[in-house]
Design a protein around this nucleic acid. Sequence first.
DNA 1: CCAGTTAGTTTCATCACAACACTAACGGGT
DNA 2: ACCCGTTAGTGTTGTGATGAAACTAACTGG
Lengths: 387, 387
Amino acid sequence: MSSGTREGRARAAAPWPQLPEAARQVLLEVLIHGPIPRAEIAARLQVSRPTLSRITRQLFDDGLLVEGGTELRSTTGRPSELLHVNGAARHFFGVKLTGDHLYAVVTDLTAEVVASVATPLRSADVTEVVGQITEVAAALGAAFPDLTAAGVTLAGTVRSGSVHGSAYLDWSGVPLAGLVAEATGLPTAVDNDVQALTAAEHWFGAGAGLRSLVLVTIGVGIGCGLVLNGELVEGAHGTVGRAAHLVVDQSGPVCDLGHRGCAASYLLNAAIVRALGAADYADAVARARAGDPAARRVFGDAGFALGIIIGTVANLVDPQKVLLTGDGLPLYEVAADRVREGIGKSYEPDPAQLDLDVQSFDFGEWARSGAALAIRAALTGRTASAR
Amino acid sequence: MSSGTREGRARAAAPWPQLPEAARQVLLEVLIHGPIPRAEIAARLQVSRPTLSRITRQLFDDGLLVEGGTELRSTTGRPSELLHVNGAARHFFGVKLTGDHLYAVVTDLTAEVVASVATPLRSADVTEVVGQITEVAAALGAAFPDLTAAGVTLAGTVRSGSVHGSAYLDWSGVPLAGLVAEATGLPTAVDNDVQALTAAEHWFGAGAGLRSLVLVTIGVGIGCGLVLNGELVEGAHGTVGRAAHLVVDQSGPVCDLGHRGCAASYLLNAAIVRALGAADYADAVARARAGDPAARRVFGDAGFALGIIIGTVANLVDPQKVLLTGDGLPLYEVAADRVREGIGKSYEPDPAQLDLDVQSFDFGEWARSGAALAIRAALTGRTASAR
DNA sequence: CCAGTTAGTTTCATCACAACACTAACGGGT
DNA sequence: ACCCGTTAGTGTTGTGATGAAACTAACTGG
């Protein structure tokens, strides 16, 4: 049995070149900091230029890096050649599972989406879902024979590739990474969706390369991810980023957990829909945009609660930047002033030092962050799959 | 001017041997994990035994490491020799400043206090305070000619050795590390007191070697420090760990910032004294211990607020351990059940996974954590002083 | 007292690295 | 147009750190 998994890994790992640690670091640097001259990489990684030359040559030979364009870093002298990641060199498979749907994408090495699919889940049974993932991987992957790794994200508690509790799928103790790796033959990483999105933003998004970062997602759920000291905070028990039930106003509505006036009771899409008696979230947003006073009040209060969350988390970890995203983002359009008010009420330092960055969102982001997870695992050598 | 500071650093850095990076890592490992066999260090640092031998020999020659005792790691074979840090090899100077007092200690390399002093501050003027620190360093250091480095802690915002805002001393933009380094001739590190205490607990205390850790201090102020991914979280603007003003109950008392029912309004020593009309905190504690119903209620509410803070922070960062300490610790003795209640109310995962560790406290800890800061700076090479 | 086992050290070949020296590519002055 | 100064990038080579292998040391149990 153990030899079986070992073979599985060997077979799967084959398409990914055995990069030495130094080469991985260089590739990562180019990935995160975009087109970048050699000199800057050498400075960042504290290596000499000859060493960097040797490493980049290897990466050129592997087709992972290409040169393109030049940049004058000073008024005189020879211009630098800029290094780019050759995205097309490898492709990755990303999946987001919800309670009833499967969203899948194929991205290139720069996490650019090149194909995507969304289908309803046939069943919530683990084996069925793994089977369906495998089918989608085969279908999408047909055009990309160089699929290198897979990443699966879902809402819930994930510890080292095993799902230990999921809000929408009633799974517990499911070694999903191993199962998907075995079924697809791809090294597979599995993580919580918000964690994966945080990592994706930190490597490929608005938070690229920052030392610290807070990501807040709003929508069907409320999520929070942290990057501190340049690393994703993983949590000792896989339950990092619980910020949904902060107390906002005890005379408020009641949430699912029975808290009166917690952030979730104002902020969740479902809470907004319920408070307005709207048909769905889109309807509620439409009413707020049309100027309906009740809708504006409900969205305003939700915005205030969001501000409290942002301010509270920022108080605690003092990040360089706070990213806000999620399918509930229309809330911010409608009630940005109330969000600011909530931040002002809770954030203790000078509000000017809080850099809030609102990132547009579509549902494909979740699946893309699965692919980003796969890229991350491949590059850090943590093939969280078959271990 | 710049040559002056450079000379200052060169003069001061002399007593600390120029340890190569690898040797520093080994020394650190022994410091944090106590008496430890070679094999374990080699495994942790991923180096071969020959390499480790070479490094330890260097450290023996420098007098920083000693062998002592043996340990049988298996039933058969030669026993391992345990490595200890030779604490007496170096001494460090630690200072805590309050608004009106100066607390100073000398510790050895293992952060064991070997001498201590407390004196009133003659003045809150920067130059005066630096002068007084220098006097105390000279007096205490007379018995320890091998003083290697100094560390100063105080409440307030500290960024790279400069004090940018202090609650009790009205300083702003004071390059304290540089000033003390110049006056004492010792490489000097300066940091926020709670940050320093967190670092001290992480290296020398109950959180030694943990990957993640939350420290909550209660007393005159409320502080919170974070260690995540094995590193102290420093904060992008030096304002990490603001947790004092979390909303607990909006029908509660009002704090200094005008918040109604925030944690600080219940929890600060001053708030408890005020609520009870007590003479001082000791009086309030005595009344609660004697069973006075009003006192028990006030302390109980404070305990509940403390529980909310602990639960909220633990929700967010999911630490391996939460350490509780500070001069307000009698509160926990009196109202442990209400603290647990507050945690239960706010902490979302299974409360059993929250490992709360209450650490006894005396005021010398603050100064000791200054020395720990100095040790940390010396060992990580970050002489935060003269830069 | 010897075999078996693990700890620690010495020796030595290997390898990665940075210093050095060189070529390449650019702007600007004459 | 051409040279010069400047910076980017690349071979070459000596140095130094490392781990594999072999060896010695220290212990237990038969």
